[in-house]
């Protein structure tokens, strides 16, 4: 979706302003929502791509105004509502409706380290050979899907060179809609800044993006 989350190339957001000696958390609630997001039971089939999609569905004014970890809160409640795991009333009041069944399958503390070490592997074996070779010129397709995509606007229609091939990876665009992993070859494509931003940009500098095969066409 062409949302406000797709920020590459925008002006007007101000200086970067890194904090000196930034703490890990800026308030205790940040740690709690981080831990909740890691530990809670999400609806069946929920995945990280869906998490990202729910985040980018935040209305643009909220997306820009709210603190980073408040986005995580918004994703958690959207996932609970969408998956039927909680009602709006329950979220408003912080109390379960009377008579609801209590589950007993939440992740336990002694399972957390194993989850940290073993989860998040997105490579998949593919039987089809890659369409593109390292060094080949490719064009990022000009597509504007209303759903989730990881093809940023600033490279659409632009020509780059295949720099790395990563093998098969879970395809974010389908996974985010719970339409399956449908793995594809993933490539790093290098685009010259001049191709992306015009003749005044550096002829030497490059932006490298990880792009799935269906984002690309021969150039």
């Amino acid at each position: 979706m062409n949302g406000v989350h797709d920020m590459g190339g925008m002006h007007g957001h101000g200086p970067i302003a890194p904090e000196a000696d930034e703490p890990l958390w800026h308030a205790p609630w940040e740690a709690r929502i981080f831990g909740i997001t890691r530990a809670m039971t999400f609806p069946k089939g929920f995945n990280i791509d869906r998490f990202r999609h729910l985040r980018e569905l935040l209305p643009p004014d909220l997306y820009l105004a709210r603190a980073y970890y408040d986005h995580w809160y918004a994703v958690c409640i959207a996932a609970l509502l969408d998956g039927g795991l909680a009602t709006a009333d329950e979220i408003r009041h912080g109390r379960a409706a009377p008579g609801g069944a209590r589950r007993n399958d939440a992740v336990r503390a002694d399972q957390v380290w194993q989850s940290q070490k073993s989860q998040g592997i997105f490579t998949r074996e593919l039987e089809t050979p890659p369409l593109f070779a390292i060094g080949q010129r490719v064009r990022a397709r000009n597509i504007n899907p209303a759903g989730h995509t990881r093809l940023p606007r600033y490279v659409r229609g632009k020509v780059g060179v295949v720099h790395l091939h990563h093998g098969g990876h879970v395809f974010a665009d389908t996974n985010a809609h719970m339409q399956g992993e449908v793995p594809q070859h993933l490539y790093t494509v290098a685009f010259s800044m001049r191709e992306l931003w015009g003749p005044e940009a550096s002829a030497r500098d490059e932006a490298c993006l990880d792009l799935w095969e269906s984002y690309l066409e021969p150039a």
């Binding site: 831990g35 909740i36 939440a106 336990r108």
Partner: peptide
């Protein structure tokens, strides 16, 4: 409020939240 709700419904174990932090 969210942590209370999830704990009450058995959708999270507060000790697991602590462990992740």
């Amino acid at each position: 409020a969210l942590e209370s709700l999830l704990t009450e419904k058995g959708l999270v174990d507060p000790a697991a939240i602590d462990a992740w932090i």
